[in-house]
Simulated scan of single mutants.
Amino acid sequence: MKQIFIDQFIVPAIAQQEFKERMKVNRDFIKKLDGFVEDKAYERHDERGNLICITTAIWENEYVLQKAKEAVQQLYQQQGFDMKAMLQRLHISMERNTYQAITD
C-alpha cells in the first residue's frame, strides 16, 4: 500500500529563504531514492506573514519509506546537518505524519 508522507511547516518570514533552500535539498535528494513515486509542495501566508508550507511525498510502500527515512538521516550526517536544531533556531514548527489513501 502506498505511503503518503505529509509535513506541515509554519515558518516565520525571516526564516523563509533558508527554509526553502533546505527544502529544495531534501526534495531533490528523495526523488533519486528507490520507491519514490512523487512529491508536491504547497504554500500560503498567514495574516502575520508566516509561511505555511505543506509537503507530500508518496512512496510505493512502508518498506521503501523506512529506507528513505534512513537515507535522509545518512545525508544529514554526511552534511553535518541537524534538522531539529535548524527548526529550533529559526522558530519553525513542524507537524509530520504518514497517511494512506482512502479507497472507496
Score class of each variant (00 low, 15 high):
residue 40 K to T: 07
residue 46 D to E: 10
residue 31 K to T: 09
residue 43 E to D: 14
residue 63 Y to N: 07
residue 62 E to N: 12
residue 78 Q to K: 14
residue 31 K to F: 07
residue 64 V to D: 03
residue 29 F to Y: 14
residue 56 T to C: 02
residue 66 Q to V: 10
residue 57 A to I: 00
residue 26 N to F: 14
residue 61 N to Q: 10
residue 28 D to Q: 13
residue 22 R to L: 13
residue 33 L to G: 04
residue 44 R to N: 10
residue 67 K to S: 12
residue 74 Q to S: 10
residue 69 K to L: 05
residue 68 A to N: 01
residue 68 A to R: 01
residue 50 N to C: 12
residue 42 Y to K: 01
residue 49 G to R: 01
residue 25 V to M: 05
residue 60 E to R: 03
residue 67 K to Y: 09
residue 75 L to K: 07
residue 34 D to C: 06
residue 23 M to Y: 15
residue 59 W to P: 04
residue 56 T to K: 03
residue 34 D to A: 12
residue 73 Q to K: 12
residue 39 D to G: 04
residue 76 Y to M: 12
residue 33 L to D: 13
residue 77 Q to V: 15
residue 46 D to P: 03
residue 45 H to L: 03
residue 45 H to K: 05
residue 67 K to I: 11
residue 58 I to E: 09
residue 46 D to S: 01
residue 49 G to Y: 09
residue 26 N to D: 06
residue 61 N to D: 09
residue 67 K to A: 15
residue 25 V to Q: 10
residue 68 A to T: 02
residue 22 R to W: 14
residue 66 Q to C: 12
residue 37 V to G: 10
residue 59 W to C: 00
residue 68 A to E: 03
residue 69 K to E: 11
residue 41 A to S: 02
residue 39 D to F: 04
residue 54 I to W: 11
residue 55 T to S: 15
residue 74 Q to T: 11
residue 64 V to K: 07
residue 28 D to N: 11
residue 63 Y to I: 07
residue 74 Q to Y: 14
residue 34 D to T: 10
residue 40 K to C: 00
residue 32 K to W: 09
residue 60 E to K: 06
residue 76 Y to E: 08
residue 77 Q to H: 05
residue 49 G to T: 03
residue 76 Y to L: 13
residue 38 E to Y: 02
residue 51 L to C: 10
residue 74 Q to F: 13
residue 54 I to G: 01
residue 47 E to N: 06
residue 43 E to M: 08
residue 36 F to W: 15
residue 70 E to C: 11
residue 27 R to I: 15
residue 24 K to R: 05
residue 69 K to T: 10
residue 76 Y to H: 10
residue 36 F to D: 04
residue 64 V to T: 02
residue 31 K to E: 15
residue 60 E to W: 12
residue 69 K to S: 05
residue 22 R to H: 15
residue 23 M to Q: 13
residue 61 N to T: 07
residue 61 N to S: 03
residue 67 K to F: 12
residue 23 M to C: 07
residue 46 D to H: 08
residue 64 V to L: 02
residue 55 T to P: 05
residue 50 N to D: 09
residue 55 T to G: 03
residue 76 Y to T: 02
residue 41 A to G: 05
residue 43 E to V: 14
residue 28 D to K: 05
residue 63 Y to C: 05
residue 55 T to A: 01
residue 43 E to G: 14
residue 64 V to C: 05
residue 65 L to T: 00
residue 72 V to G: 00
residue 58 I to H: 11
residue 32 K to R: 15
residue 36 F to Q: 03
residue 67 K to G: 00
residue 37 V to H: 01
residue 55 T to R: 02
residue 62 E to V: 01
residue 44 R to E: 06
residue 60 E to I: 04
residue 62 E to P: 10
residue 45 H to I: 08
residue 37 V to A: 06
residue 53 C to H: 08
residue 23 M to E: 13
residue 49 G to V: 04
residue 38 E to T: 03
residue 44 R to A: 06
residue 54 I to D: 12
residue 48 R to N: 09
residue 68 A to P: 10
residue 24 K to H: 13
residue 45 H to G: 00
residue 60 E to A: 07
residue 62 E to H: 13
residue 47 E to C: 06
residue 27 R to F: 15
residue 70 E to P: 10
residue 62 E to R: 14
residue 52 I to E: 02
residue 44 R to H: 11
residue 52 I to A: 04
residue 44 R to P: 04
